[in-house]
Design a protein around this nucleic acid. Structure first.
Lengths: 231, 231, 231, 231
DNA sequence: TATGAATGAGCGTTCATTCAT
DNA sequence: GATGAATGAACGCTCATTCAT
């Protein structure tokens, strides 16, 4: 069902796209449907896929819909991606990379663990707020696809967890955090909190609550939950 | 796409099933294909759907596969459920009811909030361990379906959250728990932790870690995270 | 490209068609488009495929066209055949069986080899005349498909050749036929003659020449070509 | 489907090719991808088409595959040929011309008919052995295309048959050959023998039997089949 | 009730052909 | 001329759903 030897990052048609990759498609959500300045086709398709997957879900998304949203012909998608599945996987890869990069930037490299955790949590939820479509893809589709991707195993998500677990285990070894709970479990738990909040916020139409204030609450809660007991 | 006026709980053909819900269908996959004492059809179909959805995912599950697993003809499913979507929704409803019932039983009705929370967490993760297929459905498919069910809004899941939020807000008003964080947010956060652990455990093939020990860790972490600071 | 584990002869839907196989579809070309007396679905599809393949060629034939010609829905074809390829292969099998049966009947089992060869040739070309669509399939599509069927190897055609080679080698060992030429080569050569004549006749619109008179000519020519020299 | 007003022999871009057909392109598959002295483009494309059609069959051959094999861009093919169909037709024309030329050379212009027929048969089968790819095209694809080319009617193949029929009817009028069988039918029959042997040899991987020895057998058989009975 | 053969709309994907460069 | 990225019509096949029995 799933293409396992997908291209994922191959830059384009025949691996030789007409222009150079224009760097991270950071601005990709708001795609100017205008003259299609060319070369950014792959990025435009990814942006369109993000939008359509977010709006309709992977299985209900039509490839032709993505093509229309990207302003390209149906067939063009297959110049850049092996299949619809590959498109999803590639989207994960790209967006996860962005997220990880952003988080690495936002987290002070050598502060105290509680501070760094706080920063991580705030940055993550801010990111969700600012790029809700990324959020949809990461939150809903990632999980969906975890199922049919058991083999694929999603290295990028592993990286993400490692980043978080690294902060925690470092804090533990420095005595800043309680070390009874294994760091990977704690990381997963924290991700669960963030992911669930993101989902609730997304499904609530972005206005049931302020996701950035929520960051403070769950940041505090999490820190207390992990901090060393001074006994 | 989605039937919104689904039957969900209508007990079956002619709305006159010959018995009450026969309790959790246990692990009814290995169903005697012989006489099938009749009347349990609806339950058997739900059990089969649970198994198949869990194994293949909602979208990759074939109605005919569910029919085979249930030992009925394809058409029979449509005597008990309006559509494949309705089957999924009905499955949620049933299983969520079971889960809620089980949790209500497991949580002491009038203990202290921390104790009750602990019990809740342990009971939930134990349930996951004992009925992993429920877990898959709740964990993966629930989220998947959240998408196409925006209107459906899932009352049973609301109940579940309310149960959890109730424990928390009670604890807050009794001064046992910190009351800065809104109880519904806290409930959601806790559910996130549990859900993520469940997912990790399921995808890890049930043996990457001991989910019941994890209950202790995250139970402790959560309690500390929420408990009142003795100012 | 080609389904190698095709059903080929499996009688129908789920290998359990509603009625019993109505024997050889001998009458199948002229299909009454009327109420579709049921049970003969598989035969009707084969007949339709024969007609459409003959008229358009395998690659230009549309599955939907065959379905229309058979008076069934597109999907129905896939209840009886794995794929379009399988449909072609199954058609070969069926028709080849018919042809072989007919030839076995027409050739006197214990006459002299020249007599039997004559009978074979006449019977074959008469068959072509009477069922030109079989002829098209055997003549044009068989060869076409020989290419993508290298592995499939077409056992039924092998049988056909063996029947012919058997007559020849028997004649050779009885001293009725010249035994310098290996019987399998001679069989192939004779088949080539018949096949080419069939093709010419088919492409000529059935009226460029009388294919049954041609049988006499090539029969005589072939016999002389093979008969023992009385030296 | 088929371009009937195809170019077929138009020498190439701008109808001003820098040289006459450079003779048989030999085994030009291994083409130097470097400067490609230009002008032989058309021939190189034909050679590539021959190779690819032979290997994959007309319908399974991809234009892009032919382009790659010819060392040109996909679009370039359309500078020399109107369509994929035209490419096939043009290929026939070219190769058939070669074959006819070669046979005319090999057959002594004024020997006795039996001798000339022998020479024809030997030369044809030798040609098959030496240029199997021509053989594939003539043998498999010619027939395939007979179907979609009913109108095209293939003048070059007519010439081929006429060459053969001419030898026969001359022999008949000179009393060297039996004149009961019409010469065109006899010609077709002989072609059938040759074609079938060629096919068997090709599909047998070129080593099931020695096609040149077979020429002796079927040559003898054919001659006897046609020679005058000394009343 | 129950069946399961039949349906047919719908979709992912391919590939001959075009055309801006 | 030559290129090859882009196009988009076309098609095989799937599968939720129906309905005659």
């Amino acid at each position: 069902m799933m293409a396992h030897s997908a291209s994922h990052d191959g830059p384009g048609p025949g691996d030789a796209p007409p222009g150079s990759e224009p760097g991270p498609e950071a601005t990709s959500s708001g795609d100017r449907s205008a003259p299609a300045s060319a070369g950014d086709k792959r990025a435009r398709i990814l942006a369109a896929a993000e939008e359509v997957f977010a709006r309709r879900g992977f299985y209900n998304a039509r490839v032709s819909e993505i093509a229309r949203a990207a302003g390209v012909a149906d067939g063009t998608i297959y110049l850049y991606f092996k299949s619809k599945d590959d498109l999803l996987i590639s989207l994960f890869e790209t967006r996860m990379k962005d997220v990880i990069r952003e988080l690495e930037t936002a987290v002070p490299p050598d502060g105290a663990a509680p501070l760094r955790l706080s920063a991580f949590i705030s940055a993550y939820l801010r990111l969700i707020r600012d790029r809700p479509q990324i959020a949809e893809v990461l939150t809903v589709e990632l999980r969906q696809s975890s199922k049919f991707m058991k083999e694929y195993s999603n290295p990028r998500f592993g990286e993400f967890l490692k980043l978080l677990a690294g902060i925690i285990s470092e804090g533990q070894s420095r005595g800043e955090l309680d070390d009874e709970i294994p760091a990977p479990i704690a990381a997963r738990a924290i991700f669960g909190v963030l992911d669930e909040l993101a989902l609730a916020w997304l499904l609530g139409g972005h206005n049931k609550f302020d996701i950035v204030r929520a960051a403070d609450w769950v940041g505090a809660m999490t820190l207390r939950g992990l901090e060393r007991r001074n006994s």
